[in-house]
């Protein structure tokens, strides 16, 4: 039997690492993170059963985005613009070529 993957999708791993790294750099304390994350899960869980996979990391992502915009580390509009810039980069890059912003 193959072992379960630690992370089910690459972005789960990336998001996890980003959060741990920011915590260790002192941008927020873990208990504060846990409290915010718990609140997001609760809010999402009221609407439907969360499966602990993609749903779980979507709630994690929302929590981190909100936390960073609250602390001023990242602005909401800058995040939206950067997301759009990456999307455009993927759409204009031929398949197989490295995707870059510029």
């Amino acid at each position: 039997m193959r072992p379960e993957p630690v992370f089910e999708a690459p972005w789960h791993a990336q998001l996890f690492a980003l959060t741990v790294h920011l915590n260790e750099a002192g941008h927020f304390a873990w208990p504060d993170w846990a409290e915010r994350f718990g609140a997001t899960l609760k809010r999402h869980g009221l609407e439907r059963e969360l499966n602990g996979g993609d749903d779980y990391f979507l709630a994690w992502l929302e929590t981190l985005e909100t936390l960073l915009t609250d602390t001023g580390a990242a602005e909401a509009t800058a995040l939206r613009d950067m997301r759009a810039a990456w999307e455009a980069a993927y759409l204009r890059t031929p398949h197989g070529a490295p995707v870059t912003l510029d």
Partner: peptide, 26 residues
């Protein structure tokens, strides 16, 4: 014709990482 487009959350994670890296936070 172009690269596979990552999912919405994957793009949002990339955006976070790029911005925080540019700011020297990551």
């Amino acid at each position: 014709p172009h690269s596979l487009l990552p999912s919405d959350p994957a793009l949002r994670v990339k955006a976070l990482e790029t911005i925080l890296t540019q700011k020297g936070l990551v």
